[in-house]
Simulated scan of single mutants.
Amino acid sequence: MAELKLIASFALGNLLGEAVVWHDASQSLWWTDIHGKALYQLSWPSQQVDKFELDERISCFAHLPENDSLAAEFPLLVAFASGFALYNPQTKQRCWLARPELGLPGNRMNDGRVDRQGRFWAGTMVEQDQGQRGSLYCLTQTGARAVLTDLAIPNALCWSPDSRVMYHGDSPTGTIRRYQFDAASGAVTDGELFAQVPQGEPDGAVIDAEGNLWVALWGGGALAQYRSSGELLALHPLPVSQPTCLAFGGPELDLLFVTSATVGLSEAQRAAEPLAGALLVYQSQSQGVPEATLQSLHWQKLMAQMEGTANA
């Protein structure tokens, strides 16, 4: 298996870089520093980095399609720490759509992405353990629907190229599970073990054009690459111990972008890992799958439902 070639790095010192996604329409990469309360945009190939400060942590997000009636006003659908909202990083305007765990202290939103049919998914993690558990939600026209429950730190969410399989991991277990996925309804059934990672914990994951699953190994300092059968194809070492998420991008989808974190590292560890918290860019011989286009919902109806719940 060919090694990855590091071609660029951006030493931004992210506390918890995450949710990296390639936006083809703007030929740019986007990601969030959750604990740093910031969104980043990297234009490619100019390599210009723009930073947007936040008033609440964002864990994951998706771009509204350009033909959405609200895209100009709210270009992003995001999972803030406390729920789903439309958001404009330039103006900081926000409209809440669903906050399913607002009354559950100690939890926050975590990993998420758009499935190949355009539905937006995001999970909640246990940040302060008070006996509660997290869930994986799918945002629908009627609100946030819990699909998986009894989770600690949901991660590694991705789908096979044919949408027949959904992959998902609960990081502390060290495992990724495979579910039968109904593309039409978004229902999942028959979960089974896909892989036990060889080191660290599974964090963000992505599928390549050949159906292989790539996953960042938090605390493991590497990317693991699996066949769809669950066979470990390769373990790609990284210059950071806490890689968090990855995405294929670039005009040919043959660049691999990897986010990382500095949170929890000692001064000695930071000194030994000068690229901790950086965005890493690799040339890959594998090619990615185009990011799915978000499906437009009746956003105003969701907003009205939120207002009705708040006033009840």
Rank of each mutant, 00 (worst) to 15 (best):
Q27S: 13
S28Y: 05
L29V: 15
W30N: 03
W30D: 04
W31G: 04
T32L: 03
T32F: 00
T32M: 01
I34N: 02
I34T: 12
I34K: 00
H35V: 11
H35Y: 11
G36D: 05
K37M: 14
K37V: 05
K37C: 13
A38E: 02
L39E: 03
L39H: 08
Y40T: 06
Q41N: 13
L42M: 11
L42D: 11
W44H: 02
W44A: 12
P45D: 09
S46T: 15
Q47D: 05
Q47Y: 02
Q47K: 08
Q47E: 13
Q48P: 00
Q48C: 09
V49H: 07
V49F: 11
V49D: 04
K51E: 13
K51R: 15
F52L: 12
F52W: 14
F52H: 14
E53H: 10
L54R: 00
L54W: 02
D55T: 15
R57S: 15
R57H: 06
I58Q: 08
C60H: 03
C60K: 02
F61S: 13
A62W: 04
A62T: 11
L64A: 00
L64S: 00
P65T: 07
E66P: 00
E66W: 03
D68K: 00
S69K: 14
L70K: 02
L70N: 06
A71F: 06
A71S: 14
A72E: 14
E73D: 14
F74R: 07
F74S: 11
F74W: 10
P75D: 11
L76M: 13
L77G: 04
L77T: 04
L77I: 08
F80W: 06
F80A: 10
S82W: 02
S82I: 08
G83Y: 06
F84L: 08
F84K: 02
F84V: 11
A85I: 00
L86K: 04
L86A: 09
Y87V: 10
N88F: 08
N88Y: 09
P89K: 02
Q90P: 09
Q90Y: 05
Q90F: 03
K92F: 01
Q93H: 09
Q93Y: 00
C95Q: 15
C95A: 10
C95D: 02
W96Q: 09
A98D: 12
R99E: 14
R99F: 00
R99G: 06
R99H: 08
R99N: 08
E101G: 01
L102C: 08
G103P: 07
G103N: 15
L104V: 15
P105F: 12
P105T: 09
G106W: 10
G106P: 02
R108K: 13
M109Q: 12
M109W: 02
N110R: 12
N110P: 05
D111T: 11
G112P: 06
G112V: 15
